[in-house]
C-alpha cells in the first residue's frame, strides 16, 4: 500500500532523515516510534508531498501522493492537529475539505460523530481543547474513508477515554483492511495498537519488526517456592541471574533450558515465562540511551 525507498532530507547541511525505507501491507497498523526530533514528522511530510525529499521517494498504491489527482481518497493524513483556522467551526472546516475532495458536505457530520465531536460541530475551533483539535484532525483524515491513514502523533493531547476510542477506531479500521501508519514518541501508546514498529532515531530506521519480536529478550523470568535452591541450580549451570519484578528471578537463558534444569532438580515452579523488554528499554538499547 505504502512504499518508501531511501527517503532522505537534508536541511542546511544537516541530515534529519537518512535513507528511511519501508513497505506497509494492507490491514496492518504500523507505529513509527522515536523521540522528538528523530525525523518522524519530516518522513511523514515527505510521504504526503508537503516536503520535497533530498533523495529517495515514496509511493502510495504505486504513485507519489501528490501525483494522484485527488489524493485524499488514497490517504487520509493528519500531520498537525493545530493547523486549522481558529475562527471557523469544526463543521465548516470539514465541509470545506469535503468540497475539495469532491464528496457530499453531509459526510462532515458523519465523521464528526465518529470522533465524538458531534456536539461541538458548530463551535469555533479556537474554543476547542488540544484533544478536540486532534480529534478534528482525525475526522479530517477519515473524511473520504481512504484505504490508508497517515497520522502524526494522533494520540497527543487526548484524555484516557479519547486514547481508548482512537485505539479502537484504528484497530477496527485495520480489521476492515485499512492500513495505518502512525507516529508516536509516547512508547506505551503504540504497544496496544501496532502490529509492527519502526523505531527511528537520528533520522535512521533502527529497528523494524513485529512488536513481540522486537521486545523479546534472551532472558526468562522464573519464580519458585524455594528461590534459594533455584538460584543454586542456575548458578551451578553457569546461568547468570538477577532479581526481577514481582519476586521473579531473571535467568539469562531461554525458558526451555530453565524448565529442563528445574525439572531435573525437582524444583516446583510457580511461574516461568520469557522476559519481554519494555519499549523504553528497546528504544534506549537501540539508540545507546543518548537520544
Amino acid at each position: 500500500m505504502l512504499s518508501a525507498w531511501g527517503l532522505t532530507k537534508v536541511y542546511e547541511g544537516r541530515t534529519v532523515v537518512d535513507q528511511v525505507g519501508f513497505e506497509l501491507r494492507p490491514g496492518t497498523v504500523t507505529a513509527f516510534l522515536g523521540p522528538n526530533g528523530a525525523g518522524k514528522s519530516t518522513t511523514l511530510r515527505m510521504i504526503s508531498g508537503l516536503t520535497t525529499p533530498t533523495a529517495g521517494h515514496a509511493t502510495i498504491a504505486g504513485r507519489a501522493y501528490q501525483q494522484w489527482r485527488n489524493p485524499s481518497h488514497v490517504a487520509g493524513v493528519l500531520l498537525d492537529g493545530q493547523a486549522v483556522h481558529p475562527g471557523r467551526t469544526g463543521r465548516l472546516h470539514l465541509q470545506l475539505a469535503a468540497k475539495l475532495a469532491g464528496i457530499p458536505s453531509r459526510r462532515a457530520d458523519e465523521v464528526l460523530a465518529m470522533v465524538g465531536l458531534a456536539d461541538a460541530a458548530g463551535r469555533k475551533i479556537g474554543k476547542y481543547s488540544l484533544g478536540m483539535r486532534q480529534r478534528l484532525g482525525l475526522a479530517h483524515a477519515l473524511l473520504t474513508d481512504p484505504p490508508l491513514l497517515i497520522l502524526d502523533e494522533p494520540i497527543n493531547g487526548l484524555d484516557p477515554e479519547g486514547i481508548r476510542s482512537v485505539r479502537t477506531l484504528l484497530r477496527n479500521y485495520a480489521t476492515r483492511g485499512g492500513t495505518v501508519l502512525l507516529s508516536s514518541h509516547v512508547l506505551s501508546e503504540v504497544d496496544q495498537t501496532a502490529d509492527r514498529v519502526l523505531v527511528i532515531g537520528n533520522g535512521r530506521v533502527l529497528a523494524d519488526g513485529p512488536l513481540a519480536q522486537l521486545t523479546s529478550s534472551a532472558r526468562s523470568l522464573v519464580k519458585a517456592a524455594d528461590m534459594n535452591r533455584l538460584a543454586q541450580v542456575m548458578t551451578d549451570a553457569r546461568i547468570p541471574i538477577q532479581p526481577a519484578i514481582d519476586g521473579h528471578m531473571a535467568a539469562h537463558a531461554p525458558v526451555e533450558r530453565v524448565s529442563e534444569l528445574t525439572f531435573k532438580a525437582g524444583i516446583p515452579l510457580l511461574g516461568l515465562r520469557p522476559e519481554q523488554m519494555s519499549l523504553e528499554d528497546l528504544f534506549f538499547r537501540l539508540t545507546g540511551g543518548n537520544s
Binding site: 498504491a61 494522484w68 489527482r69 485527488n70 483556522h85 475539495l100 475532495a101 469532491g102 473520504t144 484505504p147
Partner: peptide, 21 residues
C-alpha cells in the same frame, strides 16, 4: 477509492471553497 483518487476535483469547487473562506 482508486477511481475517486484518479478524478480531479473541479476548479469551480476550489473557487467555491475560497469564497466560503
Amino acid at each position: 477509492w482508486h477511481q475517486r483518487a484518479s478524478a480531479r476535483t473541479g476548479f469551480g469547487n476550489l473557487v467555491l471553497v475560497e469564497f466560503r473562506k
